[in-house]
Design a protein around this nucleic acid. Structure first.
Length: 491
RNA sequence: GGCGGUAUCGUCUAGGGGCUAGGACGCCAGAUUCUCAAUCUGGUAACCCGGGUUCGAUUCCCGGUACCGCUACCA
């Protein structure tokens, strides 16, 4: 609508917190749209709130975006470095009469609604004041204004919203919209400290950066008429808006810190695979239109469209996220998985460099052995720990479950001997050795298998025993069996 | 309070004037097994309510309700 060229979109986080999943999804939709359309994705940091701003969080936000695979083509731009533009725009609007200076104290004028809020203590009798009651400063005479200026009163600049008529805009998700102007209050453009508000900053920047599609959270839907008005007053063509539904917590309120892990970083740390996270997040509020669930990034890019964005808020379902993660963990080509395994093992202090070089084949086989039982990356360093180090403990639960039989120390000792005597170390040889022993002792093979598993890995949850033996190697297997004997002995 | 938006299994969703309302997660059961997962099979479960319009509404319209958002010199 606004530009004949390729679309330009932007993601504009403010550094007042970490990147949360809602923001991440918005970024993702922008990115998918840009990639799908062959457009440009701009990153802009909206840091005009000096009070709540925490510049040190910017790096973390960028890092989370990179982890998500959302890479920007331009930026990051910082609004704090573009203040002159906003002041100039505000001046222009003042001159054209589209805006006026307001000398009220910051808390004084709140459109009359503040009265309601202040008495909002369960009291049913509330004064009904028109929300859009204009600030008295709008009607100041030239003399009064001059007087205020002479007195050095701090001033903010407010937009003079038309007292009648309607404002319209198009939304790619919610359709054509119109709002009565009387419902819109005279919002502030420039604060008395000279910094722009969101409304001014966002419009000036979107105009300057030639943004064609504004894709953002639906929490901005109600304020969009203000921006449409600003575009008009600035003589600029409005973009196409696309508001995406919000992501809610399990209690149906907007996802926030209260819901625990809502920052992207916490999911990174927990060991979620970015592509799984991306797949899950994209399906929250967007649908490919058919029954596809498992969509890798190229398919997402290929199929994404604003037309299939939902209008209903969605609840963040961690169980389904884990399911996606499991799918990727199980099905990704092992080569793609290895870097994440390495990162996890490094993090746990278990990594050894030869696994990346001379023993890479062993690592691949072992990862393939472990991963069918994983759901999160950290499974590699927790229950599968015994594959990567001798330093592991016997899980109490496992001991209680499989080390009950008092004959076990004797059996496991014999098993160690039998295995040590094996000329060839392979799956079937281990299998036969164990089953022969079981037959000779007149016990079920399962008894020895389960007990041996605990001795080898310390866990009840583990891959099949003989594959495990192969992965560990003869020396370690025999060693660990013997090492376990004292612990197996009933107390 | 005002204004706006939304409403399909518990959750994410497909669909749409006539369908046994589809899929996925979860849950339950069975199969499998060497533990635990995974896997396979089967099952459970939904069109918010009330009026219209219509031969026929879950679908279209209106009202209600619920929820969400906005109503800041936050973004």
């Amino acid at each position: 609508m606004s530009s004949p060229g390729k679309p330009r979109v932007r993601f504009a986080p403010s550094p007042t917190g970490y990147l949360h999943v809602g923001g991440a999804r918005t970024a993702l939709f922008n990115w998918l749209f840009a990639r799908h359309e062959g457009g440009t994705f701009v990153l802009r940091v909206e840091d005009t709130d000096v009070e709540r701003n925490r510049p040190e969080l910017v790096d973390g936000i960028l890092e989370s975006l990179r982890w998500l695979g959302v890479e920007w083509d331009e930026g990051p731009y910082f609004q704090s470095k573009r203040l002159e533009m906003y002041r100039a725009a505000a001046e222009r609007l003042l001159t054209s009469g589209a805006a006026y200076a307001c000398y009220c104290k910051p808390t004084q004028y709140a459109g009359g609604d503040a009265v309601v809020q202040n008495t909002d203590e369960g009291d049913a009798e509330q004064p009904k004041v028109a929300r859009s009651a204009p600030c008295p400063c709008r009607n100041l005479t030239a003399e009064e204004r001059a007087g205020n200026e002479r007195a050095g009163l701090p001033r903010a600049i407010r937009f003079a919203v038309p007292r009648s008529g309607v404002t319209r805009f198009d939304d790619a998700v919610f359709g054509a919209r119109e709002v009565q102007n009387v419902e819109i209050e005279d919002f502030v453009l420039l604060r008395s400290n000279g910094l722009p508000t969101y409304q001014l900053g966002v419009v000036v920047d979107d105009v300057d950066m030639r943004i064609t599609h504004v894709i953002r959270g639906a929490d901005h839907l109600s304020n969009t008429p203000k921006q449409a008005l600003l575009y008009q007053a600035l003589g600029a063509t409005p973009p196409i808006f696309a508001h995406v539904p919000l992501i809610l917590g399990p209690d149906r309120t907007r996802l926030s810190k209260r819901h625990g892990t809502t920052s992207v970083g916490s999911y990174t740390e927990e060991g979620f695979l970015p592509e799984a996270f991306r797949n899950f997040l994209t399906l929250l509020g967007w649908s490919p239109g058919d029954d596809s669930e498992f969509l890798r990034t190229p398919e997402l890019v290929e199929r994404f469209s604003l037309a299939n964005v939902s209008r209903t808020n969605a609840i963040f379902d961690r169980a389904k996220l884990e399911w996606f993660n499991m799918q990727y963990l199980h099905n990704l080509p092992v080569g793609e998985l290895l870097p994440y395994v390495e990162a996890e093992l490094r993090h746990a202090g278990l990594w050894r460099d030869e696994w990346a070089s001379s023993e890479r084949a062993w690592l691949e086989r072992t990862v393939d052995l472990i991963r069918p039982r994983t759901r999160l990356m950290k499974d590699f360093s927790t229950w599968a720990r015994g594959f990567f180090t001798d330093a592991f403990e016997y899980e109490t639960e496992a001991r209680e479950k499989f080390w009950k039989d008092e004959r076990l120390p004797a059996f496991l000792g014999k098993l160690a001997d039998a295995l040590a005597a094996l000329p060839d170390w392979n799956h079937d040889a281990c299998d036969h050795a164990l089953r022969e022993l079981a037959a000779a002792e007149g016990v079920k093979a399962g008894l020895l298998i389960n007990a041996a598993r605990v001795a080898l890995l310390g866990r009840a949850v583990a891959p099949p025993l003989f594959d495990t033996m192969l992965a560990l190697g003869k020396e370690r297997v025999v060693g660990r069996l013997r090492r376990a004997l004292p612990a197996v002995a009933p107390r």
